[in-house]
Design a protein around this nucleic acid. Structure first.
Length: 233
DNA sequence: CCATTAATTTAGT
DNA sequence: ACTAAATTAATGG
């Protein structure tokens, strides 16, 4: 199962079809440096990839699958910060900020990830301005998105929050019909509602014909109405 | 290997 | 908080 020393059948970074925007900008020798300092691995659904408080030894590149990023607050309650999409980096915040990792990450489905040695990653940033630029773009976009969501979320009622998150997923999957990658509890932890309140709002939306629900499958029927609810809180 | 049951997780009220 | 349903693990043949 675990074959750390067998790189023969692994794709190299050079030939990788799933390069990040940043890696796409590297030259041949830099790709080789990356290749020599990264290891591809598979993670099963439900496994924790990285825990907050752990020392940062690697940056993780998410090749396929979705991941939840969360912290456990001082009250002991879980707050999901965001759902991380494929072709993203995990643990970037800690690259220059701190020695330890600040968020926890668990797999919402089976994943393919690459561990990248942190000193190699730093070296690439220092060596290649275009690479650093792309990484910076990524980090900035992510924090803008998250702060925007959190600021607005805290000003909204349960209906608005739930409408928000439906739009969030439909945008993420680029589809009005999608399968929730989360349990009801996780959904609640994402929008800072109780689980009970979340299911209550959910079934009210269903009764009002705004959405159709089939277990984890959700179809947005009244998209415009949902946008209104999201906007008006 | 499959079937049955026990245990844990999840959802809804 | 409690119950029902569903999913997963454990057991025995």
């Amino acid at each position: 199962m675990f074959t750390p020393f067998n790189k023969l059948n692994k794709s190299t970074c050079t030939s990788c079809k799933d390069k990040s925007c940043a890696v796409a900008v590297l030259n041949e020798s830099q790709l080789e440096l990356l290749d020599g300092n990264s290891y591809e691995s598979e993670i099963k659904k439900g496994e924790t990839i990285l825990r907050s408080g752990a020392l940062v030894s690697h940056i993780i590149y998410l090749k396929t699958g979705y991941v939840k990023e969360f912290i456990i607050g001082q009250s002991g309650k879980t707050q999901i910060i965001q759902i991380v999409k494929p072709f993203s980096y995990l643990g970037l915040h800690s690259l220059f900020g701190d020695k330890i990792n600040h968020y926890s990450y668990t797999a919402l489905e089976d994943l393919k990830i690459c561990y990248i040695d942190i000193s190699a990653f730093k070296r690439l940033i220092k060596e290649n301005g275009d690479f650093a630029y792309e990484v910076l773009v990524y980090v900035c976009k992510e924090s803008l998105n998250n702060f925007f969501r959190f600021a607005n979320q805290s000003q909204k009622s349960a209906n608005g929050r739930f409408a928000d998150i439906l739009l969030y997923f439909s945008e993420m999957y680029n589809n009005c019909n999608f399968n929730l990658p989360l349990t009801r509890q996780e959904l609640a932890d994402l929008i800072s509602l109780s689980r009970e309140n979340t299911t209550r709002v959910m079934s009210r939306f269903k009764a009002d014909g705004i959405i159709k629900i089939n277990d984890k499958n959700i179809e947005i029927v009244k998209f415009d109405l949902l946008k209104k609810i999201s906007k008006n809180g």
